[in-house]
């Protein structure tokens, strides 16, 4: 049932809305079809980012892919929480360390161990457009623990124009979502992983 809702919400509604009204152009989307389980890492400038990425995920994987969302921001009341879990397919994470029952890294690791996929914004919160800031350490720990899972960089170009931070008005602008090849890590040192994954995202940004 949840899968049908998700397919309807993302693959039908959002994909067509983004394509036809907003003018989103999916580039190299076929990369997603090649891997069964993946960690998507993307730059984050707008709430539209999650919609754009989730709408491009193949139907067979859509219910198995979870975006991460902050509990204090998105889980304000019960209705919001219910919608986030069932319509967005998000996993809510408490950012306040005192209230955490389980560490966020542990939650994400469990999801990966169950054979499910993650969508992460390693910059943390919504950053400045045209600028990829430093990645957070959690990503490296996650990749270190699960070396067999494909890490796919996703660069979102100009999507922040359609819905910038602090705005509620959606305005169509042509934009692009670019998928890169899964990252090949040479060493699984924490720092190397961070540098490598950040470089691959910057590379995508510069090539398109």
């Amino acid at each position: 049932m949840k899968k049908i809702v998700l397919i309807f919400f993302y693959s039908l509604f959002w994909r067509n809305f983004l394509k036809l009204i907003i003018g989103l152009n999916y580039i190299n989307r076929e990369i997603l079809f090649k891997s069964k389980q993946f960690i998507l890492i993307a730059n984050h400038n707008s709430h539209m980012d999650t919609m754009a990425i989730m709408s491009s995920i193949p139907i067979k994987n859509i219910s198995k892919t979870h975006p991460m969302a902050a509990l204090d921001f998105f889980g304000g009341n019960k209705i919001k929480k219910f919608l986030m879990r069932n319509l967005i397919n998000a996993t809510l994470i408490d950012r306040n360390p005192e209230l955490q029952k389980e560490k966020p890294i542990q939650i994400m690791d469990d999801i990966l161990k169950k054979g499910r996929s993650l969508l992460l914004y390693p910059e943390g919160s919504r950053g400045i457009s045209h600028n990829i800031s430093n990645f957070k350490n959690g990503l490296a720990i996650l990749i270190q623990n699960n070396p067999n899972i494909d890490v796919i960089p996703v660069y979102l170009k100009d999507i922040h124009k359609t819905l910038p931070k602090g705005s509620k008005l959606i305005v169509p602008f042509k934009c692009k979502i670019i998928f890169g090849q899964p990252i090949q890590f040479d060493s699984y040192d924490l720092n190397d992983i961070l540098v490598k994954s950040q470089c691959s995202l910057i590379e995508l940004k510069e090539n398109y």
Binding site: G23, D158, H160, P164, L169, V171, F173, K174
Partner: peptide, 25 residues
């Protein structure tokens, strides 16, 4: 609509004026 979208996106308008862009649509 499509032509306006192509033009507005290509002309690199300051996005602080997005509400005016919306009015154009």
């Amino acid at each position: 609509f499509v032509a306006l979208r192509e033009l507005v996106s290509a002309l690199n308008i300051n996005i602080d004026y997005r509400s005016s862009v919306f009015l154009c649509y």
